[in-house]
Simulated scan of single mutants.
Amino acid sequence: MPQHAGASSHSQGSRGVTEADIQRAGTLLDRVARIFSQRVVGQDQLRTVLVTTLVSGGHVLLESVPGLAKTTAAQTLASAVSGSFRRIQCTPDLMPNDIVGTQILNYATGEMTTQLGPVHANIVLLDEINRSSAKTQSAMLEAMQERQTSIGGVVYPLPQPFMVLATQNPIEEEGTYVLPEAQMDRFLVKEVLTYPRPTEEVDVLDRISDGSFDRPVVEAPISTDDVEWLQATAEHVYVDPVIKQYIVALVNTSRGGGPRPVTGLDAQVRVGASPRGGIALMKVAQAIALQEGRGYVIPDDVRLLRHAVLRHRLVLTYDALADAVAPESIIDAIFAAVPTP
């Protein structure tokens, strides 16, 4: 990045996010990281994705085979921010009322009372979202988007902060309902988890043997008010017009346009990233800049979680799917084609 662009960003960023803000954010995020490392072994990328999503005020879709500590990670994140946690196991017979809540008749008084559903929590784990019916998926996604539920004509706002971690299992196709592209687009990021390294698996066995996982966490959690402050601070992280143009160029390139179109992209990508993809790139970059101790965004912040932000926003052609073309390789080609400011 040219010196003048960085200097401009810094001077502008320091007006929006002060040095004191940066220091406070660093202290809070360090506490979350320490609590996370006490409960979850390895999975540094998962921690970065979860914290970034939380600071960005978005939701995350996690894809992996069973047993990779997704539930543990979600519970740990909730405890690290003093938030309430609910886990919803999705099944084909799960109804919208089971998630949102319902009205129950009190026979003693003859009045209807409202029972709020498990979605009314700070951190909600929606396990195997692709096992629930389209009707239930849409009810959950409406709650995610509107941040409120409607029961018996009365609107109930969801607690703040509010974050959904939805999981899906890529290996079990039977009895699943694929999330439509428009609904996938509502997730800020989609992270694909891989198996831990052998050394990390040994560490897991060691901790189970000596009871480390059962010991209480000594680190004090941050508060939900701290999380809301982090979210507000991230929104004030300065994004230079040059960086915004860079993000727009990336999104346009994914649609077959941009300053330097990628040759043969139309044979692999049927639909590129929507404007929501550009917004996600910017919000994630702001959250990463804050975690890195900066009040301004640099191109590396935009690049860091590019796969997580864009992999679920590209609709591949049938030929690309048949040839098992990885969306990550297409994203890398898009980023390589667009000149870095």
Rank of each mutant, 00 (worst) to 15 (best):
M1A: 15
P2F: 08
G6Q: 15
S8F: 10
E19H: 10
Q23D: 13
G26F: 00
R31S: 15
F36H: 12
R39C: 11
G42R: 07
Q43H: 12
R47F: 13
V49W: 00
V55K: 01
V55P: 00
S56R: 02
G58H: 03
H59Y: 08
V65W: 04
S79L: 13
S82C: 05
R87V: 06
T91M: 12
P96N: 10
N97F: 09
V100I: 15
T102E: 10
Q103C: 04
Q103D: 12
I104A: 07
N106K: 10
A108H: 13
T109L: 10
Q115P: 01
P118H: 04
V119Q: 04
V119P: 02
L125P: 05
L126G: 13
I129R: 00
R131P: 09
A134S: 15
A134H: 07
L141M: 11
E142N: 04
V155C: 08
L158W: 07
P159R: 06
P159W: 01
Q160C: 00
Q160S: 14
A166Y: 02
Q168F: 04
L179S: 04
L179F: 03
A182R: 08
R186Y: 06
L188S: 08
K190S: 06
E191S: 13
V192S: 11
L193A: 09
T194V: 12
P196Y: 07
E201G: 03
E201D: 12
V202M: 13
R207P: 03
D214Y: 00
I222R: 03
D225C: 05
D226Y: 06
V227Q: 03
E228A: 15
A232Q: 14
T233Q: 08
Y238S: 05
V242N: 01
I243A: 06
Y246C: 08
S254P: 03
G258F: 02
D266R: 14
D266E: 11
A267H: 11
Q268V: 15
V271I: 15
A273F: 02
R276N: 09
G278A: 12
I279G: 01
Q286T: 02
Q286S: 07
Q291T: 13
G293S: 09
G295R: 03
P299N: 12
D300S: 13
V302H: 09
L304A: 14
L304S: 09
R306P: 00
H307F: 09
L310H: 08
L316H: 04
T317M: 06
D319F: 01
L321Y: 11
A322K: 13
D323I: 00
D332N: 14
D332T: 11
I334M: 02
P341Y: 04
